[in-house]
Simulated scan of single mutants.
Amino acid sequence: MRVEIWSDIACPWCYIGKARFEKGLESFAHRTDVEVVHRSFELDPGHAKGEVGPVIDMLAAKLGRSRQEALAMEERVASHARSEGLGYLVGARDHGNSFDIHRLLHLAKARGRQGELLSIVYRVNFAEERSVYDTRTLVDLAVEAGLDEAEAREVLADEGAYADDVRADEREAAELGATGVPFFVLDRRYGVSGGQPAEVFTQALEQAWQGRAITPVGGDGEAGACDADGACEIPQAHTHS
């Protein structure tokens, strides 16, 4: 069974959703028979390449909020990330155009290292004070994921490399009706939206495996997503027993 996950590294709920999905997959009896493929989705495709700035400033401007309100929003998302054991530095990350990162992820997919690179980029973007929009940093992360340094540099230098693959993913997302991320598609028959709790993913995998329609999920206060305008829904605060 194939699970395709549309996401953007700029999306905190994609970061959280990936961790929750992996926990849910770990509890799935047929997990060794599941192929996971990560697909591209840009939350801010119109953002000028090379124009990089603090995410707090971007959120405040885009949502019409004060910097303090934007920081409070980040703090609420951070609490969800930390509840999953993920690092999250509030206000420390940059915002920029993610197209080159998606192209590099397609190179990693071709070399069988996509999951590794995505995890590393998420960690650095959300939990470390390094910018993933810096070419030198991206090359270093590619090497850390097991990619060839020269090949990674070559792909980043060639703006056409894997560009068609990124655009194809984005067209498919639109055709499937995805208006935000993370968006999970199981066997091209079932869809799950948002960073759902791990047990929801386990249930969805079980139902898809059995060929049953997935019961609609939501309303539990734990699923969050970022929409195509870059705004992120923040569920109510929760605790895990």
Rank of each mutant, 00 (worst) to 15 (best):
G219N: 15
D100F: 06
R39D: 10
A10D: 10
V181P: 10
D227Y: 10
E116F: 05
R212F: 07
R188Q: 11
P54T: 00
I214N: 13
D33I: 11
V52P: 01
R82D: 00
I234A: 00
E4H: 02
A198F: 07
G64I: 01
L89A: 14
A142I: 11
A145I: 05
E233L: 15
F201D: 06
V3R: 14
L147P: 11
V52I: 10
R111C: 06
L63N: 09
V155S: 12
E233T: 15
A225G: 15
M58Y: 12
R130S: 03
R167S: 13
E233W: 15
S241H: 10
G221F: 11
Y122K: 11
A108Y: 02
A60S: 09
V55T: 13
S119Y: 13
D169S: 01
R39M: 01
Q68I: 01
R76H: 04
S119I: 01
V52K: 03
R113I: 05
A152W: 14
I16N: 00
I9Y: 07
E175C: 11
H240A: 06
P197L: 12
E74T: 11
G87Y: 12
A168P: 01
A48D: 05
T202S: 13
I16K: 00
L156Q: 10
Q207T: 11
E84V: 07
V166R: 08
V36D: 04
L141T: 06
P54G: 01
F28R: 00
A145H: 07
A228E: 15
G85D: 02
S98A: 15
G85S: 09
P12S: 03
G17F: 05
L117E: 10
A208M: 13
R103H: 08
V200H: 15
Q207N: 14
E116A: 13
V143C: 13
R113H: 07
V217S: 12
E129F: 04
G224I: 12
V37I: 02
E69G: 03
R65W: 07
G64V: 02
S79W: 04
C232E: 03
V37N: 03
L205C: 08
N97T: 10
V181M: 06
E128T: 05
A173Q: 07
A161W: 12
R212C: 08
E26Y: 14
E151S: 14
D227I: 03
I9P: 07
L176K: 14
F184H: 14
Q236H: 06
L118W: 05
G180P: 05
M58H: 13
T179F: 13
S241T: 02
A110C: 09
E128K: 13
R189M: 10
R111M: 06
G177L: 09
G91V: 04
E26H: 06
N125K: 10
I9L: 15
A81V: 11
A19N: 04
A110G: 05
V55Q: 07
H95S: 08
D158T: 07
M58S: 11
V90N: 03
L156N: 06
G24R: 00
V217T: 11
R136P: 02
A145M: 09
S40H: 00
D33E: 12
R189Q: 12
T215G: 12
D227H: 08
S193I: 07
A157H: 04
E69V: 01
P54H: 02
S241R: 01
G191I: 12
